[in-house]
C-alpha cells in the first residue's frame, strides 16, 4: 500500500503527471471572478468564501479521471486486482495520493487567493480548516465517481455529471464554515457536519468504489 502511494506520488510529480495544474486552475478562478464581478471590495468579500470553495471543488474535479483511467489503460489495474493488495485499500490509497497532490496544495494556497478576494480577516483560519477537513471528502467521492466511469472511453464529462451532485453537502457545509467564520459567527455546527461527511465518505466510499472497479474490470 505504501508502495502504491509512493508510486502515485512519484508519477504525479514527474513530467506529464499534471501536478500543479489544479493549483493553477484554482488561481485562475480567483483571478477571473473579480474580473467578471468587478473590483468592489464589499461584493468580493461577501462572495469570497463561496468562490474559494467552488474553485477548490472544480480544481479537484479536473484531475479526478487520472486516478484510475491511466492504470486501467496500461493494464496495471488488472494486475493490482490480482495482487495481494485489497481493491478497497488500493482505492483509499489512490484517493489519498490524489488528495496529497491536489487537495493539500489547494488548502495551503487558499489563504493567498483569499487576499485577492478581500476575504475578511477572521475567515482565513476557517478557510484553511474547512478545506483541510473537506477536501479529503472531495478526493474520495471523486475516486468513487472515477471508479464508476473507469471502463468508458470518454468518461470525463459523465464523471462530472455524476460527481458534482455528490459534492453538494460538502460544498454547502464547507462554504458555510468560511462564511460564518468570516462574519465572526460561531462555526462549530457546520464544521462538525463537514467533518462527519468526510469521515463517513472515507469510511464507506472505498467499498463502493472497489465494487465499481471490479464490475468494470470484468
Amino acid at each position: 500500500m505504501i508502495a502504491l502511494l509512493a508510486r502515485d506520488l512519484r508519477l504525479a510529480v514527474r513530467a506529464g503527471g499534471g501536478f500543479g495544474l489544479g493549483l493553477a486552475f484554482f488561481l485562475l478562478v480567483a483571478v477571473l471572478v473579480p474580473l467578471g464581478v468587478g473590483p468592489q471590495g464589499d461584493t468580493l468579500a461577501r462572495i469570497a468564501p463561496g468562490i474559494l470553495w467552488v474553485g477548490a471543488l472544480l480544481a479537484c474535479l479536473l484531475s479526478l479521471d487520472r486516478i484510475f483511467a491511466l492504470d486501467f489503460e496500461d493494464g496495471s489495474l488488472d494486475l493490482l486486482a490480482t495482487s495481494p493488495v485489497p481493491m478497497e485499500g488500493a482505492v483509499a490509497v489512490k484517493a489519498l495520493a490524489h488528495w496529497l497532490v491536489t487537495g493539500l496544495p489547494l488548502t495551503l494556497a487558499a489563504p493567498v487567493l483569499g487576499v485577492l478576494l478581500y476575504l475578511p480577516g477572521p475567515g482565513y483560519l476557517w478557510l484553511v480548516v474547512s478545506l483541510a477537513l473537506g477536501t479529503p471528502a472531495l478526493s474520495v467521492i471523486g475516486a468513487f465517481g472515477a471508479a464508476l466511469v473507469v471502463g468508458l472511453k470518454r468518461g470525463g464529462l459523465l464523471m462530472s455529471l455524476l460527481v458534482l451532485p455528490l459534492y453538494v453537502p460538502t460544498l454547502i457545509f464547507g462554504a458555510e464554515v468560511v462564511k460564518r467564520g468570516a462574519a465572526g459567527m460561531e462555526v462549530a455546527t457546520p464544521l462538525a457536519l463537514l467533518a462527519g461527511i468526510t469521515a463517513g465518505a472515507l469510511a464507506l466510499l472505498p467499498f463502493a468504489a472497489a465494487a465499481a472497479i471490479r464490475v468494470n474490470l470484468r
Binding site: 512519484r10 508519477l11 514527474r14 506529464g16 489503460e73 496500461d74 493494464g75 496495471s76 488488472d78
Partner: peptide, 8 residues
C-alpha cells in the same frame, strides 16, 4: 498489457 509506467 504489461502495466508499465512510462515515466518510471
Amino acid at each position: 498489457a504489461d502495466g508499465l509506467k512510462s515515466m518510471l
